[in-house]
């Protein structure tokens, strides 16, 4: 164990851990909200995120961000953010419509919906990974080569953004990490307030508590479920954009590992609980970094998951408990 390195670099390890943890947290929201309302794990949510990363990538290519700077670059990035949110939300809504709605309406067992989700996840991932061939069927692969080329892994965004670092009391911090943390936490606070205060948010909470009574009180369950998927998709889109700012590279199966981690974060914080997702994501991100610093990279996931098991042993419903329906939201 390398304690000297760990303590010397604790601030930096913590900040980079928080930044990636914030991305986990934004993705975890999608899992947690759908679970809160439907008691269903939407395993295709990782693909919702993945499509968002490609939306950012395509926007950056289409608007030629590599040659832009200053205000223009910021404008392009804002467009990319909205493109990511839009595409992710669209995929999330399509998922709800195609993979879930009929199953839910007919009261199919949850296990069936779970299999449907896993199937949808593979289909979405491979559609992205094979898009060069799909474009080829229409003879478009040459015209669209910038967008469909490098179908499996795409690094085209690398080097587009400068990532200045600054020193605070001898600690070197990346500006991107700060942007990611601030943006993610900001979005979470907004969403928390939305679910607590707005009419739609009340509907979501009511449906989570008791769908039948909620619909007797005039809450449209189908609409509520749609809104839940929509919000999960929008947040995944933000996560995807921030992820691309930080990492630059995406691939057709990028959602897989991140999805597992985000799902873990949701369970860690208490699945069904919005604030739990935030806390779970941040704790997981920091735990991974600290674990790697102390024990080496091969232990990164071991530390994170041992932590998960330990916390669940003491608090079986996660750090903050399961409670989308409760007034605390």
């Amino acid at each position: 164990m390398n304690f000297e390195f760990f303590f010397n670099n604790l601030p930096e390890l913590t900040i980079t851990g928080l930044a990636f943890g914030a991305i986990y947290a934004l993705i975890a929201l999608g899992y947690t909200m759908v679970y809160g309302v439907l008691q269903l794990i939407n395993f295709a949510h990782s693909e919702v995120f993945m499509y968002g990363t490609f939306a950012t990538l395509w926007t950056v290519i289409a608007l030629n961000a590599a040659d832009a700077n200053g205000v223009k670059l910021i404008a392009i990035l804002i467009v990319a953010l909205f493109a990511s949110m839009a595409l992710s939300a669209l995929i999330a809504l399509a998922l709800e419509r195609v993979a879930y709605r009929r199953l839910i309406e007919r009261d199919a067992p949850r296990l069936i919906a779970l299999i449907s989700a896993i199937g949808a996840s593979f289909v979405l991932a491979e559609l992205m990974g094979l898009r060069d061939r799909i474009a080829g069927w229409f003879g478009l692969d040459d015209d669209l080569s910038e967008y469909v080329g490098k179908a499996r892994i795409n690094n085209s965004m690398a080097g587009t953004l400068e990532k200045p670092r600054f020193d605070v009391g001898g600690v070197s911090i990346s500006s991107i990490d700060i942007i990611v943390i601030v943006a993610a936490v900001g979005m979470m606070v907004l969403l928390d307030q939305f679910v607590r205060r707005s009419r739609l948010g009340k509907g979501i909470r009511a449906t989570a508590q008791d769908p039948e009574t909620a619909s007797l009180m005039g809450v449209n369950p189908t609409r509520t479920i749609q809104v839940t998927f929509l919000i999960g998709g929008l947040m995944a889109g933000v996560a995807a954009f921030l992820y691309m700012l930080k990492i630059d590279t995406t691939k057709y199966d990028v959602g897989f590992l991140l999805g597992v981690k985000a799902f873990t974060a949701a369970v860690l914080g208490g699945i069904g609980n919005l604030r739990g997702a935030l806390l779970g994501g941040l704790v997981l991100g920091v735990a991974e970094n600290w674990g790697q610093a102390l024990f080496g990279g091969e232990w990164r996931d071991v530390i994170a998951f041992v932590l998960l098991v330990l916390i669940l042993l003491v608090r079986p419903t996660g750090l903050l408990g399961e409670s989308l329906g409760k007034a605390r939201a």
Binding site: F5, T16, G17, N289, R300
Partner: peptide, 21 residues
């Protein structure tokens, strides 16, 4: 110094911190 990463991993910030150290 040495460190190990995992195939499929995309965030190498801890490894980068180790290298800088």
């Amino acid at each position: 110094g040495t460190d190990t990463i995992q195939a499929g991993q995309t965030d190498f910030s801890t490894t980068a911190t180790k290298v800088n150290d």
